[in-house]
Design a protein around this nucleic acid. Structure first.
Length: 920
RNA sequence: GGGCGGUUAGCUCAGUUGGUCAGAGCGUCUGCCUUACAAGCAGAAGGUCAUCCGUUCGAGCCGGAUACCGCCCACCA
């Protein structure tokens, strides 16, 4: 005796075991069969620091849908997973952990977090790089697996045997190889320039890692006394403390006000140094006073001015954000303290002319939110323009398609004005830059191997570079380094270029653009053919999810509650390209209901199937056998099928095509919507209800089992279509329904498209007419308050064929509409009763005892008449329009004509009814 | 300062070459525990498609303005 199937689907009882089995069986390793078309994608590697959030889940759901879809179409699919070492993020987390160990008694909170961070940073320096990096590795071993466990649980069909990490030995050597080659080509250089410096992190960061924040600031007007004679020149600045490093005042050469002062000197207040007034085109005469202080060591523009005028560069702020000795009396002060001190002293000396409110955008460190300090520093840079050019070209030529299309323009705009990339970081966790400095002749050695002597002077006193590379430098190699590059591996040959990349917009420049540049540089081919940018996940209040806001939905938690399939489906059906998606509990609820619907449809099938005698079960199994997958051609041709079956197969075919097309264009929401509608509102609401009597009769051994075969086929096909979206429930039910061994998997069952032969527009039309009649009857019953009863009805129709159709299916009509009996007649309905429902093809009268209120009936008919007349006047206008008749396509004209005729016919009937009502 | 996206039913959003597109889900209302499913079934109400011009025989859809909302980029002190 089979156990009873529960009425409520419990995902938690089946999902974990399938998740485990898929991984244990290594199901998603691509095969070695080279004849099959392949489809490959590498995952955007999540940072080892994190656990997955809803953005990841959306990303992985979209990827998984595509992967499963292609796999079920017989393609050789590789989804390569992996993680990123996340240099700066990991270092911060490990530091914080060190801090927490040192100060375990602090109350948790933001203040504590930064206290731990500071303490951890101190501990790190005490430990030294070697021990600290060791500690990072330990942390990675302990926490890096979280992401994998989560992904497994969420059903991601990736090939875990190819799992990669950006600091794997092989990967690291690829990083070195790239660095050395780019250096040898002169594309990587070292130099002293203004960089974005985070005083808290103690490292340079790239421009992309600086986020700008609008803040209310002030513009201070400071007087710089002229060296000769009385008077002064006033400059406006938002950062008065940097004046300590001023080496000039600049004015526009065309500015009449200052023309005579150029080349004279002013005295720098407070420090009393003398600095020149220079003329430079950069200065905007309309801004402030038209005179600008020049601080070459702490402002990129001033740096440029200083270059042009050969001005000295005085550093007054150090790497910790404190004032240097050059700042004289302010030495040792924090930069913000120094600002107050400078302003105070200027006021005292009467040199602060005025202060204005001034909104400004402040550069903030992406990681720690400290104010970034532009600072002169020796760093490694990468020349971007030569690499960007080909990367622009491939997108312009369509060799890489960016979806949605408007991101293409954003990409091209950014690439067009790209500038050099600061790739060195003063961090310890990451890829060490493969460079050494000769302490004798100060030459720089960049090498794959550790050098023992200086190739120039032969000295053996070499100092290795301690800087590491920006994390994104290594990520940029991801599409080929994960496949074995620089070795020419079979994987590289088979899976590069990849078919698809799916990522969020936030890393398009950080990662997407750089992968394209590096892929072209080192593989001479694009890294992927399509770059799909997915949506941003927001909460019900449209807020971006973030830990600090506390509105983060944990995928595992939500998955436990609603089931992975429901969450995946909710994400997929919301994921229209180019729009943010809003998630809410209600949304998950409705797709949990959908999973339950699927479960219960299966329950119906199974319950009845189990009632069949073994003999009949065997017969059905035999009948289904010659059709591996869904080879419809092997069975009865459509003409031998009942109308409902023909309709269902035809709808199945259409749905399959639609999903195919939707997913081919990454229109996940459309694919999800199509299968949802098909399964619930066509398969369940109509088909299952339609065939129910035959199915149950067969189960009771009183009917034939012919309908079983069709039902089984449609249901299995529906599971195939659903599987990429809802892998767990479909896997479970596929086994239940087909009885296949548990070792097999629906995810690998090739889905042969339904035979084109089942396309059947005539059946679709006929079935639609039946549906129309049934809906009309239900509608009329509801309006007449007869829902509890089973009244009789009269149906009249001029078209004999339609009448025949109705008669042939009267049992189904009665059952589904809740009618007792129907008198089908040709022509008009008979009798005195007036409450007749009209359509263009038929009249319907529900027979009932209660007399209809003539006034209400009149009202109903008047309203119907009004609506019809409105529609008619519209179609009439179109048909009277010469331009429309001559210029619109034939089928559009015919469509309007047909509709017009139907409306006229319908109106005629309504008018007749109104006449009759008037006479009574 | 540039650029991009959005504005469609009470809510969240679909609507791909301009013509059966005015839609879905949720919510609301009505009636049903009909032996697959009340996480369900059957009905219903609800929208000048932000505003204004224009192109067209025909416009949520194309073009141009305007108004809000949001995002991205930017070295103007």
């Amino acid at each position: 005796m089979e156990p009873e199937i529960p009425k409520i689907y419990s995902p938690e009882t089946i999902e974990p075991q399938w998740a485990r089995q898929w991984v244990e069986q290594k199901l998603y390793r691509p095969s070695d069969d080279a004849s099959r078309p392949r489809f490959s994608l590498t995952i955007p590697p999540p940072n080892i620091t994190g656990s997955l959030h809803m953005g990841h889940m959306l990303e992985h759901t979209e990827i998984d849908i595509v992967m499963r879809w292609h796999r079920m179409r017989g393609e050789n699919v590789l989804w390569l997973p992996g993680t990123d070492h996340a240099s700066i993020a990991t270092q911060m987390i490990v530091e914080r952990e060190l801090g927490r160990e040192a100060l375990p008694d602090l109350e948790p909170g933001t203040a504590t977090q930064s206290a731990w961070q500071r303490e951890g940073q101190k501990r790190r320096r005490e430990m030294g790089p070697e021990k600290f990096v060791e500690r990072c590795w330990k942390w990675k071993e302990a926490n890096g697996g979280t992401i994998r466990k989560q992904m497994e649980r969420l059903g991601a069909s990736c090939d875990w045997t190819r799992d990669r990490f950006t600091m794997d030995p092989a990967y690291s050597s690829a990083v070195v190889e790239v660095f050395v080659r780019l250096y040898d080509e002169g594309l990587i250089y070292r130099g002293k320039y203004i960089v974005n410096w985070c005083p808290r992190c103690g490292t340079a960061v790239s421009d992309l890692e600086v986020v700008h924040e609008e803040r209310q600031g002030k513009l201070w007007y400071i007087r710089y006394p002229l060296e000769k004679g009385p008077g002064y020149i006033t400059v406006a600045t938002t950062r008065p403390e940097t004046m300590l490093g001023d080496t000039a005042v600049a004015v526009n050469p065309k500015d009449e006000r200052y023309r005579e002062l150029v080349d004279y000197r002013v005295q720098l207040p407070l420090l009393k140094r003398f600095i020149p007034i220079v003329a430079d085109d950069f200065v905007d005469p309309k801004f402030g006073t038209g005179a600008v202080k020049v601080t070459p060591a702490h402002d990129p523009n001033d740096f440029e001015i200083a270059e042009r005028h050969k001005l000295p560069r005085i550093e007054v702020i150090n790497e910790e954000g404190r004032m240097t000795e050059e700042a004289g009396p302010y030495h040792g002060l924090d930069r913000f303290e120094a600002r107050h001190a400078v302003l105070r002293d200027l006021t005292a000396e009467g040199l602060l002319e005025k202060t204005e409110d001034y909104p400004l955008s402040v550069g903030i460190c992406q990681r720690c939110h400290s104010v970034v300090e532009p600072r002169l520093s020796t760093q490694w840079f990468m020349k971007m323009k030569p690499l960007a050019q080909p990367a622009i070209q491939v997108v312009e030529e369509g060799k890489i398609e960016i979806v949605p299309d408007h991101y293409r323009k954003i990409y091209l705009d950014w690439m067009g004005k790209i500038y050099d990339w600061c790739i060195s970081r003063q961090l310890w966790w990451g890829h060490r830059i493969p460079a050494w400095y000769c302490l004798s002749c100060s030459s720089v050695i960049v090498s794959r191997e550790t050098p023992h002597v200086c190739p120039k002077c032969g000295s053996s006193s070499l100092r290795p570079e301690t800087d590491v590379l920006d994390t994104w430098f290594s990520s940029a190699l991801w599409p080929f380094a994960t496949l074995g590059w620089p070795k020419d591996t079979p994987d590289l040959q088979r899976f590069y270029p990849q078919n698809l990349m799916i990522m969020g917009f936030d890393i398009l420049f950080f990662w997407g653009a750089r992968m394209i540049m590096m892929g072209l540089k080192f593989m001479h081919q694009v890294p992927f053919r399509v770059l799909y940018i997915h949506a941003l996940v927001r909460d019900a209040e449209r807020q971006k999810m973030s830990k600090t806001k506390g509105n983060v939905i944990d995928p595992l938690e939500i998955t436990e509650k609603y089931g992975t399939d429901a969450v995946r489906f909710a994400l997929a059906i919301s994921a229209a390209p180019g729009t943010d998606i809003v998630v809410s509990p209600e949304k998950f609820d409705s797709y949990r209901a959908f999973a339950n619907k699927i479960w219960n449809a299966a329950r119906f099938v199974l319950m009845n199937y189990r009632k069949l005698s073994e003999k009949v079960q065997h017969q059905i199994a035999e009948a289904l056998k010659p059709m591996p997958g869904l080879g419809f051609d092997a069975v009865a041709t459509p003409e031998h099928l009942a109308l409902a079956d023909r309709w269902m197969f035809s709808r199945l075919l259409t749905t399959t095509r639609e999903i195919d097309e939707a997913l081919g264009q990454y229109r996940f929401h459309e694919g999800a919507d199509k299968i949802y509608h098909f399964f619930w509102h066509e398969f369940c609401d109509w088909y299952l209800e339609w065939v129910k009597p035959e199915i149950t009769k067969a189960a009771e051994e009183t009917g034939t089992h012919a309908s079983w075969i069709n039902l089984a086929r449609v249901f299995e096909a529906a599971l195939h279509l659903l599987h990429p979206f809802m892998p767990f429930i479909t896997e479970e039910l596929w086994h239940e329904v087909t009885g296949r061994p548990r070792e097999e998997s629906l995810s690998l069952a090739p889905f042969k498209l339904v035979s084109e032969r089942v396309a059947d527009p005539i059946s679709e039309k006929q079935f639609a007419t039946l549906q129309e009649l049934i809906v009309a009857a239900r509608n009329a019953k509801a309006e007449l308050n007869l829902q509890k009863q089973k009244p009789s009805a009269q149906v009249a129709c001029d078209d004999l064929r339609i009448l025949e159709l109705f008669r042939a299916h009267q049992d189904s009509i009665h059952r589904l509409a809740g009618l007792q009996a129907t008198n089908f007649v040709r022509g008009r309905v008979t009798g005195e009763t007036v409450d007749v429902r009209h359509s263009a093809t038929f009249d319907l009268r529900i027979l009932h005892e209660e007399k209809v209120d003539p006034a209400a009936e009149r009202l109903r008919l008047e309203r119907e008449k009004e609506e019809l007349e409105q529609s008619i006047s519209q179609t009439q206008k179109q048909l009277d329009n010469q331009g429309f008749m001559s210029r619109a396509p034939q089928d559009v004209v015919r469509g309007v004509q047909r509709r017009h005729a139907e409306l006229i016919e319908h109106l005629r009937k309504v008018n007749e009814a109104l006449d009759k009502l008037g006479r009574e």
